[in-house]
């Protein structure tokens, strides 16, 4: 249950970030994103899970206090909208205002299949493998470069 809550917070923070980043509103906080809070159980978050590079996460809380409602974002299989509460310059809470699991909305978008998509922050898994699937090397290089550019863009 706690794991679930932590995941929800992580997803919320990401969604909040993309919404804020996407709407280019001068009134919205444009500074870096604080690290998502970790549950007391020490459940790893996306930022510290075995060194998974997370281009959106950085430290340094510089938000203005208040409550910010993100715009409605089309997640293709439904709409997402979140509200963020900033206290002491940090994200104190992220609440869902709209989520794709909202049945009515989902049914509208997709009438012939029950949408069951799940979202999570990626985490490294350390088990031994026989084979690896992934985009080929030039793509990896491109993404590592993009990840680096994204992290610089937040500084």
């Amino acid at each position: 249950m706690r794991k679930l809550a932590v995941s929800a917070v992580i997803i919320g923070v990401f969604a909040f970030y993309s919404l804020m980043h996407g709407r280019a509103n001068p009134a919205s906080p444009s500074a870096v994103l604080p690290r998502p809070t970790t549950g007391s159980s020490g459940t790893p978050t996306a930022t510290d899970a075995g060194g998974v590079t997370n281009p959106t996460a950085a430290s340094g809380p510089v938000y203005k206090n208040g409550t910010y409602v993100g715009n409605v974002s089309d997640a293709q299989w439904g709409y997402v909208q979140v509200k963020a509460v900033i206290q002491g310059g940090k994200i104190a809470n992220v609440q869902w205002m709209q989520y794709p699991s909202d049945r009515q909305r989902s049914v509208e978008i997709n009438s012939y299949a029950d949408p069951q998509l799940t979202t999570e922050a990626i985490q490294a898994q350390s088990a031994q493998v026989d084979i690896v699937t992934g985009a080929t090397d030039s793509s990896i290089a491109f993404m590592e470069s993009l990840g680096n550019a994204l992290s610089q863009a937040q500084a």
Partner: peptide, 13 residues
Amino acid sequence: RIGVRNPFNRKEH
């Protein structure tokens, strides 16, 4: 066992 490579870090899955 097939690992899905982390696109942000090719050493991980």
